[in-house]
Design a protein around this nucleic acid. Structure first.
Length: 364
DNA sequence: CATGCGTGGCT
DNA sequence: TAGCCAAGCAT
């Protein structure tokens, strides 16, 4: 067995009992807890990656209403899947889920695999999600170590290893294999996460209300506020962007982003990065000609959009553009003229969604 | 192992 | 305001 953090004489059974008793009294009524359909558990776990419960709930409801079964999602167009994911972020999650669901339908007869080996081969299913599905949907004694669990265990065992390091996560997984209640792995894993979300919170943890405070080394040492240890993220890089709103006969030009990288597969208004010292409007005009074969000049400022990603900070300056001349035949296949009323059919990232809203307001 | 990948809420 | 945080994964 790999190295773990569980002390020699830790009373595992008493800990399990205290944790499970608390969970059964305090578990939240969440939409994905209404049944144990592995498909729905899967969808919820993908949506919950790096995303808070309150944010996920309405997305999950709409998604399952439209795609109630694995088969219905498998048969859907990717565009519609992305549209339902619009605003949720980390969009490759949606595309990976869609691809993986299609694979389960074709390779596993529509049944979500129930072994770590098989389920981990699916796109978008990493160590955490594999463990979550296996334990919650199939009641298998597999660890599901997320940020909550690492925070709880860091405090429970007074661990000062950096939780950002993959090696640390593996030691936590080994710890869970020691701790997990084999008679109810589903509740055990959910209880640890629920405890992290409701009691053992990042700031001001509620130790006085905690059902396992008697087991907690950090509480005993009075250092719970210092844990877990986590390396600091570097600040986002600043990028200036220029975008053009180009109208022709009541239609506007939009562009589909490539299927990899930032905001993959989403739609946007034609835009490019402004190089240092370059003129905004000059940059836009040259870009529109080189990428869309459209000779245009700017005809007014529409709006500025400031948008911060995890690793980027966009300062997006949007201009109205007037076409002087265009070569229709050489418009790239990723670009499309659409009616303003049809913009709602396309999935935009939040930054460009703000432009959509502005255009629809102005139309009123 | 480090980095890229979204967004909204909270302090 | 600026920074931190949230049921991570792919490369």
């Amino acid at each position: 067995m790999t190295e773990h953090y569980v002390p020699k004489h830790f009373d595992i059974e008493s800990f399990q009992d205290a944790l499970l008793d608390w969970f059964e009294q305090n578990l939240r009524d969440l939409p994905w807890r209404r049944d144990k359909d592995p498909y729905k558990i899967w969808v919820s776990e993908i949506m919950l990656q790096q995303t808070q419960v309150d944010t996920v709930i309405p997305y999950f409801e709409k998604f399952i209403e439209r795609f109630p079964t694995l088969e219905s999602l498998a048969e859907a167009d990717e565009e519609e899947v992305l549209k339902l994911w619009e605003g949720l972020g980390y969009y490759s999650r949606a595309r990976n889920l869609h691809q993986a669901v299609r694979e389960v339908k074709s390779e596993y007869g529509g049944k979500v695999p129930d072994t770590r080996e098989e389920i981990s081969r699916l796109k978008g299913v990493g160590p955490y999600t594999a463990g979550a599905i296996l334990s919650i949907a199939y009641n298998r004694p597999e660890p599901a170590v997320d940020g909550n669990v690492m925070r709880v265990l860091s405090r429970l065992f007074h661990v000062r290893d950096d939780i950002q390091r993959p090696a640390t996560r593996k030691k936590f997984e080994a710890s869970i294999r020691q701790l997990i209640a084999v008679h109810n792995p589903s509740y055990f894993n959910q209880a640890l996460m629920e405890l992290g979300a409701l009691v053992c919170s990042p700031k001001s943890p509620g130790c006085l209300l905690c059902p396992v405070n008697a087991f907690c080394q950090a509480h005993q040492d009075g250092v719970q506020e210092e844990l877990p240890v986590k390396g600091k993220a570097k600040p986002p890089r600043e990028v200036d962007m220029v975008a053009g709103v180009i109208m022709k006969g009541g239609q506007v030009l939009i562009h589909k982003r490539p299927d990899s990288g930032l905001l993959a597969g989403l739609w946007e208004f034609p835009n490019t990065e402004r190089q240092k010292g370059e003129d905004w409007e000059e940059t836009l005009s040259r870009f529109l000609y080189e990428s869309f074969s459209i000779k245009a000049e700017t005809a007014g400022h529409v709006m500025d959009v400031k948008h911060t990603f995890s690793h980027l900070r966009w300062n997006l300056r949007v201009f109205q553009c007037e076409i002087i001349e265009e070569e229709e035949a050489s418009l790239p296949p990723s670009a499309r003229w659409v009616d303003l009323s049809a913009l709602d059919d396309y999935a935009f990232p939040v930054s460009h969604g703000k432009i959509v809203k502005r255009l629809q307001q102005d139309g009123d």
